[in-house]
Write a protein that binds this DNA or RNA. Structure first.
Lengths: 353, 353
DNA sequence: GTATTTGTTGACAGCGCTGTCATTACACGC
DNA sequence: GCGTGTAATGACAGCGCTGTCAACAAATAC
């Protein structure tokens, strides 16, 4: 009924609680006989140390906190949609935590809050996590990074773009991915390419836009202002931007949207204007959202290895917690995959070059 | 640099640490003057009590643990897909936790493990959460419930079907939802309806199947064994089951799949057989997955209010933790919504009755 | 006025661990 | 044999909080 404590284990094994602690934490200088005794007793009792007591007494809490943007979360909550990025991030983090005996705690952060710095400070001193996984856009928020640095907390920035040398970082090259996708369209023969920009809250939006522009320049293609529209990563904004871009004359033969939800919106806009995809206009997205393979046409997009990023991040934190001295690499780039599907095709009348 | 403790606050306010504790926990019998002094000091210092210390000293940990099936998680992780159910569950739980100053911890549970009971016991005594949110299929696992009951832990079962009177429960009526969907198809004029069963690991699969059968009987329609196929909630199984059912002669005019992923598979199977949806065969799903509104045709499905369920669950736990005596309702049914979209239509040649 | 009750505050122990340091056991050299 | 060094173990304090209970102040009754 009541919980098993270290005292119970020590008594049963006939040793001191300190020895139990040593064995269970894999500390050196323990004889094989002692280790066996303790392990048997702990096993028989089904003992597991209390997280709270450990956290209070020792340096480690065995908790990894994932920091998630509150605004984004509330938005998803209101609309009743899940958050695929978050979900995949968690899967990765969980897989790593499980191995290391860590626990994953999800924490909301309101980056727009006036008391943001204090909130972060308070959260860290309350939780004392072994490390923090920052997800976009929190991972690019200077105030948060400042607070964490001041507190000396270990953190990993997922998909961060700004201040690249700051803190630990796991990222994919959004700029190059967008460059590649644009090149992919250009190679198909498209010369008139539109672009739907993502939400300015995310540093990745800028990187993707710049990647697009760099590729256009590289291939000698003109970026027409009327074919660029500012979205906010939502389906509705994609619909609107798509309608606007596709109503221009002449209109582009391809549109690259900064994420899949907006790409779906653009497809919808095209359909409403009587244009077929990819027959009249090719459409590409970014993210490989859950619907991308069930939509018709299936969406050409860029797949981010979010779970892999979170895994790498969690691993960095765990390694640091286990041995702060041992300097593991602090930056890791992961590979994206450009997935060509049915929503893109060579423009009518202009075969592949 | 170093963290602010209750001692700092007490010193600054010129009171005892116990008074600080009382004020911060909203305990009664505190004068307004004291309260103000403490609040000012705490505010000035940006103080937040340590979770570990609180958990160790007091009865509450301010942690809610969400128990998630490990097998399912590993499967998602391997295939690189997010888990929409989980994501929505979390959104709801997070919104509630935020208000109550609680923290959400996600924990994997391997219901197939030989040491499951001990694992659960160990987890609970290690974490001492204020309460547990059990997600399917964990919420239907008797071993887990036994362990939790034995330990006296507070838990809420999400979407549980078995042992309905056991523990706290937030659920939607899968049986009735499936009944309604079947009725919806029947009312459209379908008399020949196939069904793709869900994974037997989930109690909901059975409920949905029975709801389907009950509705068929109610409407005087015959359930043909060759039009029933056993899937496992994956797209691949939907593809396979769809192919099998649609290859029968005669084939049904409608197929109801136990979830959306399988419904997408059935649509795909129909397409491969040269059948159009809903022209040749109507297809309905269950879950309102993220892709359901972007697929072509958009999928007729049942929407589960997962976030709402988790919110209600978290609220039950928090209410219980704050005041175990006060007996809040232990069971709550939430409403589903049948969303009619384009994948279903009256059968050819048989107009709506 | 005193006795009694009620309300407010603080002193202190202790939650279950880990860190520090003292102690003991044991091996080795001479 | 003894001293010396090193490995193994334990005693004890204390992490930051809350629960218990005692002390004290204020309000009420007589």
């Amino acid at each position: 009924m009541s919980a098993v404590t270290i005292y119970d284990v020590a008594e049963r094994a006939g040793v001191s609680i300190k020895s139990v602690s040593r064995v269970l934490n894999g500390k050196p200088n323990v004889t094989e006989a002692l280790r066996r005794k303790v392990e048997e007793a702990a096993d028989a009792l089904g003992y597991r140390p209390s997280l709270s007591a450990r956290g209070l007494a020792g340096g480690r809490s065995y908790i990894i906190a994932a920091l998630v943007d509150a605004e984004l979360t509330v938005e998803h909550w209101r609309s009743g949609r899940g958050n695929d990025y978050l979900s995949r991030m968690e899967l990765g983090a969980l897989m790593e935590c499980r191995q290391a005996g860590c626990h994953l705690l999800v924490e909301l952060v309101d980056v727009g809050s006036a008391t943001l710095e204090r909130d972060i400070l308070a959260m860290v001193s309350s939780l004392r996590p072994d490390g923090l996984i920052l997800t976009p856009p929190v991972s690019d928020c200077a105030v948060v990074l400042d607070a964490l640095d001041r507190r000396g907390a270990a953190y990993v920035r997922l998909g961060a773009e700004t201040e690249p040398s700051r803190g630990r970082r796991v990222y994919m090259d959004d700029h190059r991915a967008a460059y590649d996708m644009t090149t992919y369209l250009a190679r198909m023969g498209h010369r008139d390419i539109g672009f739907v920009v993502g939400s300015p809250r995310y540093a990745a939006s800028r990187a993707r836009r710049e990647g697009f522009e760099a590729a256009m320049a590289r291939h000698g293609l003109q970026v027409r202002p009327e074919w660029i529209a500012d979205g906010d990563f939502t389906f509705a904004s994609g619909l609107e931007c798509g309608a606007r871009i596709l109503s221009t004359d002449p209109r582009p033969t391809a549109i690259f949207a900064s994420n899949d939800d907006m790409a779906f919106g653009v497809i919808q806009a095209a359909t409403r204007l009587g244009l077929s995809t990819p027959g009249d206009v090719s459409i590409a997205g970014f993210d490989d959202a859950p619907g991308a393979q069930f939509s018709v046409p299936q969406l050409t997009t860029v797949r981010q290895p979010v779970a892999e990023m979170a895994e790498a991040g969690a691993r960095m934190i765990i390694a640091n917690a286990q041995d702060a001295a041992h300097e593991a690499p602090r930056v890791r780039e992961v590979a994206y995959v450009l997935i060509g599907r049915d929503s893109t095709a060579p423009p009518a009348g202009r075969p592949r070059t």
